[in-house]
Structures are given as C-alpha cells and as structure tokens.
Design a protein around this nucleic acid. Structure first.
Lengths: 240, 240
DNA sequence: AGAGTAGAGATTGTTCAACAATCCTGCAAG
DNA sequence: CTTGCAGGATTGTTGAACAATCTCTACTCT
C-alpha cells in the first residue's frame, strides 16, 4: 500500500471498514434478541397492546432473563415497547394524537433536509441519490406483485434515505425511531393498499425533483405529501 | 369536592397528580442510579472520555452489576454514555461536527415551534409563558451572583420550556437529549461566562417578543440567536 | 345479589455468584 | 519497530434465589 495516495478516498475507505467492523461485533445476545423482537413488532406478529412475558421469551429466544431485559430496554428507547412498572412490557397502542405528533416531526425534519440540500448542492457527491432510486423501484416492483406490506417498507426506507442526505447522525437516529413508531400505527389499518399506493408515484415524483435539483419545489411537494399522508392515516384510524 | 366545577382545571389537576404518581414509582434502583450518574456527567464530575468501571460503581451506588448496567443503558440512550463492546462505558467526547449537528437540529426544532405558535395562538391558554419568564429571571439572578454554571442551566431550561410550548412529547424527549449532549460540550470550555452571558439578555428579548405575540420576528431572532451561539461554541472549541 | 376484601398465585424487580469471552499490558522474538 | 504471545483484568451472560407488586379468585358482609 503506497503512502502518497489521495487522502479523501482513503478516509472514505477507512470509514467503510470501521462501519463493517462495528456491524460485526454487535453486542450479540441482548442486541440479537432485540433484533428478533424488533422485527416481530414492526411486522405485526406482536400487535399493539400485546404483553411480552419474560419467562416465555427467555425460552423462545434462549437468553437469560437479565439479557432479555436489556433487549427490552433497547426497544423501549426506540419507542417499540413500553414499560409498566411491576406489570411488564407491552407493545404500545398509539392513537390519533401520536399520528399528529409523529407527522409534525416528520414534516419539520424532512422538509428541512430537502431545503438544506439547496445550499450544499455543490459538495454533494454524485450517486448520492441512488439509494432513493432503489427504494422507489422496490416499491413499484412490490406493488406490481401485490405485496403491500413490502411497499410500505420500501416507502419507509425512501424517507430514511432522504433524511440520510443530511449527513446528520442524530437526524438518522430520530427518523429511525419515528418510522418504527409509524409502523406500529400501520397495523391498525385494515387495507394497507390504499394507504401506501398513492405514495409510490409521489415518491418517484419527489426523487425526480431532487435529481433535477429543484429543491424548493421538492420541499413544497414533500410538505403537502406529508400532510396528505397524515390525513389518510387519521381517516383510516377513525374508520377502524 | 363539588362535582360541577370547571372541567379544564380539573383535567389539568388530574394530569399533575398523574405525573407525581409516575414520578413516585420510578423503577427505583436502576433509574435512581441513572439519576446520580446523569448529574455527575452533566455537572462535569465525570469528564468526557472518562471510563465508568462497573465494579467501582456498584460499590459507590450500592446496586448490583445488572442494575447498574440497566442504568448505563438508560444513559446511553440519552447520549450521555457510549458503550464499547467488551471495553466498557465511556462519557462521550464530542467534537466540532457534533456541535454543528446538534445546532442544526436545535434550529430546526425550536424555530419551527415558535413559528407554529402563530397558528395556534388563540387556543394557547394564558400563563403558558410563565415557565419561560421564570427561567429568564433565574438566569439574571444567577448572573448577578456570578454563578455561571447556574446561568447555563437556566438558559437550557428556557429552551426546554420553549419546546414545551409545542405540546409534543417526542419533541420534548428529543430536546432533552440534545441539551444533555450540549452540556457535555460545555465542559471543554474554559470560560463559561462569555459563553452564557450574551444569551441572558437575548432570552429576555425572545420572551418579550413571544409575550407580544410577535411570533414571526421571534422566530427570525431565534434563528440568528442559535447561529451565533453555535459560532461561539465553535470558536471556544478551536481555542481550547 | 352485589360490593368490598383477604389471600393465594403469578409476574416483575433486584441481587448475588460464577463462568465464558474479550481486551489490555508487558515482554520477548524476529 | 513491528509481531506474537502469556497473564491479568474487565466485560458479557447465565442461573438461581428472594423481595415487592400486581391480578384474580373466593369469601364475607350487608
């Protein structure tokens, strides 16, 4: 390995490796258990209101009670579980006020990210929008296959990647939480198709505006997009 | 207690009591330990970079290792500690990029809250600004007594209460985290006076604008306020 | 019959002791 | 100066035990 090569590329490579390493030595037991539970919750196997028995789960997940409780704590702070003292952990039951709260934050964060792109457009490396494109196409493909849960997932990832453009670790973390909670809300909806379908095309529209660097219009569109999405969720909620 | 009294006051009272009860049956051990550690960290007794030994702390805090680890998890998700697998927990060392990241979020959230006040001004109950006034006065009093750490605390509370005006549980939680991390940054600053002093008057100015319902101007002021504050922190950082 | 209550059983909160897995230190060898 | 290898220290995880609290049933009293 020669010493005088370009520093920027080397730095980028170092970060990639560091990220890989960090992914490898995941604190295993507790986080592995949390991963499994997280999927069960976001995919709806554990519906809102369900209680998670410690004894039962120690057997299923094959971890000790202490480790399981650490997994609970992890998920608690992601908003996917709530603790009730001396009564156990439950999958939270979100209501319409949570919808309003979540969408308010989504609007603030996402719209700001898109607006902020205008200022730092020059320094934005090429190919930065690729993850967004992949998500759009994944959603379209899933829709054709009538897999509406997968459509919802792809749409979520689209927004997560959108926030990712801001290069803010804290925004990423917050968005992860917000979207996880949103998933919780989706499970009370009977017909996921009409909930997700309209936003496949709108995501593509948004992506194309970003690609064309029309950031201000993209921000305006996104704002209305999120208002509509919120309204749709509220309607579905009241009709349940 | 008569039955026909005004409902709004009663609702408010019920919430107060509920909050008190919730505070009482705090999951005790783990959260109590976390409280102590939190104060030690935010007050600087545990400086950034310090490692927290499990054995040592079990003796000091008089809790078991398992409970202590749960306290660690709590603080980890507040951003006040970081886990390094098989190496222990550490007080994080934030750098200039974190300053930029934190302030970006502060600007987005706080400015949006103030802007949002314009729309819901009518439904805003009287006395809602009182906590802000208290914080302003506390800061002024602490400054007169040359207690600059207390000034910093009061200024922090001012912003926390400002966010509180939005009635968003998630914004409150996020702000709590952001401000806690900010406190971490303050400890690398040698002279807290020049860092906090300018913002006593600016907080009062902001409060008066809010009281006068000049929300748009308040938002603009706050935006610049936070830009200046960020710059001050960055300068102090580079001069360390 | 219905309301209130006491107690049994189940679940969570917390502790302790032990062992496995990993990291850090210092030292020797190349 | 780097590499490889003990040995000691620290963390990760487990299982069992006991205390504290909740829930539900059955009973008593009016």
């Amino acid at each position: 390995m020669s010493t005088g090569e370009d520093d920027e590329g080397r730095q980028a490579w170092l970060r990639t490796v560091a990220a890989d390493v960090a992914r490898l030595d995941r604190s295993s037991s507790a986080e592995r258990a949390a991963d499994i539970l997280r999927r069960s919750i976001t995919e709806g196997a554990l519906p809102p209101g369900a209680q998670l028995s410690e004894i039962e789960l120690t057997e299923v997940l094959e971890v000790s009670r202490n480790t399981l409780r650490e997994a609970f704590r992890l998920l608690t702070h992601e908003g996917l579980l709530v603790y009730k003292l001396h009564r156990g952990v439950f999958v939270p039951e979100l209501d319409e006020r949570d919808v309003v709260d979540l969408y308010r934050l989504r609007r603030v964060l996402e719209v700001d990210v898109v607006r902020g792109l205008a200022e730092r457009d020059p320094e934005l490396p090429a190919g930065r929008l690729e993850p967004l494109q992949d998500d759009v196409e994944a959603a379209e493909a899933a829709a054709l296959a009538d897999r509406w849960a997968a459509v919802g997932t792809a749409n979520m990832r689209f927004h997560q990647h959108l926030i990712g453009l801001a290069d803010s670790a804290r925004m990423d973390a917050m968005t992860g939480r917000l979207l996880a909670e949103l998933r919780l809300l989706f499970h009370v909806i009977a017909t996921p198709q009409e909930l997700h379908e309209p936003y496949i095309a709108r995501n593509r529209g948004l992506f194309e505006l970003l690609e064309a660097r029309k950031y201000e219009q993209a921000a305006a569109d996104l704002h209305q997009y999120l208002l509509d999405s919120e309204q749709g969720l509220l309607d579905a909620f009241r009709a349940r």
